[in-house]
């Protein structure tokens, strides 16, 4: 009997998730509409002058990504649970870390797609140049951390009846260091701060990503086990 490698199993799960989502567009459309609404609400409720708006751009963007990301994380695991598909994955003779990596990469892809649409909309609406390589790097690192931690916690919360409420309660305290570092680094890039000032935040993001991916690889099997 053959068993697929970790990479092949991971890619199969990513391919399945992307195919299903491209067909249904349930998750992406919900995340996107929600993100755009959040940006508009922030704009109207804060009613800021251009200078102050520049100062809060990073905070608004990361709040938007965080809330929209939670929507996606909840839905992506609920789809597996509701039709018993999670058992289908757990029954496969694969390294169960492949389930984590597959779901995390899919969630990351959905977040990045939403971010790729939200950023230009924000830039046009608020006349802000957001297409700076440094800022895009921060968004990538922050999203990797968010998807890794979020997928891990969503896998834990999915068995609970109150999973929709439980996930944000579990996730936001754990993800806070990523959000704070991402906001700080994004602000610094938008203000053209020197690299030495930005590096501590970037190091936190990189360290957080590496630690949580490693922890998930080590413990995911235990987490999804009954």
């Amino acid at each position: 009997m053959l068993t697929p490698s970790l990479l092949r199993a991971t890619l199969a799960i990513v391919r399945k998730d992307l195919s299903a989502e491209l067909r249904s567009r349930e998750l992406l459309s919900a995340m996107l509409v929600f993100s755009l609404l959040v940006i508009l609400i922030f704009n109207f409720t804060l009613d800021l002058d251009p200078v102050t708006r520049k100062d809060v751009t990073a905070g608004v963007l990361w709040s938007t990504f965080a809330f929209a990301g939670t929507l996606g994380l909840n839905r992506s695991m609920a789809v597996e649970k509701d039709r018993g598909s999670l058992d289908g994955l757990l029954l496969a003779p694969i390294d169960r870390s492949a389930i984590f990596f597959g779901k995390a990469i899919s969630n990351l892809a959905f977040m990045l797609i939403v971010e790729a649409i939200v950023l230009p909309v924000y830039a046009v609406l608020y006349n802000e140049n957001l297409f700076q390589p440094g800022l895009l790097l921060v968004i990538l690192l922050g999203s990797v951390g968010y998807a890794a931690v979020g997928t891990l916690l969503a896998s834990m919360a999915v068995h609970a009846r109150t999973r929709d409420v439980l996930l944000p309660i579990l996730l936001f305290p754990v993800i806070l260091p990523v959000l704070l570092a991402a906001v700080k680094a994004s602000n610094a890039f938008l203000a053209d701060a020197p690299l030495a000032e930005i590096m501590p935040s970037l190091n936190i993001l990189i360290g957080y990503d590496v630690i949580f991916i490693a922890l998930s690889y080590m413990f995911f099997d235990e987490i999804v086990d009954e």
Binding site: P4, A9, A12, R83, G84, D87, L91, A92, P93
Partner: peptide, 27 residues
């Protein structure tokens, strides 16, 4: 192989795509 009262299948994939996915997981 396991069959339960839940389908363990993906509603947004075709019959063939579902089997392709599981065939990859089982090599």
């Amino acid at each position: 192989g396991v069959v339960s009262h839940l389908p363990l299948l993906y509603a947004d994939l075709s019959a063939e795509e579902n089997l392709q996915f599981f065939a990859r997981l089982y090599a």
